[in-house]
Design a protein around this nucleic acid. Sequence first.
DNA 1: GTCTATAAGCCGATAGAC
DNA 2: GTCTATCGGCTTATAGAC
Lengths: 195, 195
Amino acid sequence: MARTAGSHSALTAPRIREAAQELFARHGYAAVSMRQIAAEVGVQVGALYNYTPDKQSLLFDLMTAHLDALLAAQAAEDRPADPMQALEAFARFHIRYHAERPDAVFIAYMELRNLTPDNFATVETLRHRYEDRLSAILSAGQAAGAFRIAEPRIATMAIIAMLTGVNTWFRQSGRLSLSEVEDVYWDMTRRLVTG
Amino acid sequence: MARTAGSHSALTAPRIREAAQELFARHGYAAVSMRQIAAEVGVQVGALYNYTPDKQSLLFDLMTAHLDALLAAQAAEDRPADPMQALEAFARFHIRYHAERPDAVFIAYMELRNLTPDNFATVETLRHRYEDRLSAILSAGQAAGAFRIAEPRIATMAIIAMLTGVNTWFRQSGRLSLSEVEDVYWDMTRRLVTG
DNA sequence: GTCTATAAGCCGATAGAC
DNA sequence: GTCTATCGGCTTATAGAC
């Protein structure tokens, strides 16, 4: 099927997503205008509305795409039967996956308050689904006697906050490689649940 | 000295600060207008400019006031000579101080990208000064043989991320009191540095 | 110190030509 | 699918009356 001159849908759609993601991460959703996104893509502002009904949907789609991909990638990982090995796999996966997508992670945490109530509820459900996977590992380890955890739900939140914190300081050009950073954080995570 | 009718400087100034803090925390700096702040205070928008030269200064002043107060409060705490006790005091202080000021904490972490470069540098200096106090405790404990820490600077970032994470889920009306939450997090912090 | 009025410009979103 | 032009409304900040 011949394509009309000026028809670039297959190219424009991902470019809009990438431009929006980078600009939202750098300046914040509310501070970025549809005109800025269009300029970054190299189209006029009206053209954006062929791909998204409004600005809010652009944000919501970025967040849900990120969380869907996170859940799918985590589900695709090996889940060792041994709780200690399962926790190590989770910790290393979490650090690696998040460190490689700082913009998407930043938006998913920082722009929650700019979602409409319905969209917020949907995103929160996805986030909880991810947290529940860590909670399940901790509970299994607790039941098996491998871990000693006073408050499993708090430990879940503490571990995720600690691991995600890597993104606030890690730089590829730094002293430590991501692999070495994984080692350090896994050691801290292991101590947290055994001690 | 008699006061002119309509002169409410001593009352208006803190009310502007409080309104800005609450609105910035709830909706984000970029999403809040000077008109919204004025409406919350109960004055017209022009009156705000008797107290702040512009919106940016309002944000900057909130952040520096928060960090200055944090540093002063931390400095006023007892600093036990024993590293383990010093770390416990720091962890408990950090949780309590941050949990009691969720709006100020939220703004200080989330609105960094909305600061001008000069203001950002100033705020980062204050934040590093606070982090350095935890690093000093960890180093002293390491030197005294009380702690076993592979990467002291990473441990600093990990502990602060973990402790500040309390604010993402803690509610006064929840199952656990703040004091009990302190106990749980201190236990995890202790494990982190000893293991 | 607060008010009203205004300047100058950007916002999200839409209509209609091509 | 992209463009230009536009609508109605909002923005920060200032000027000048009281």
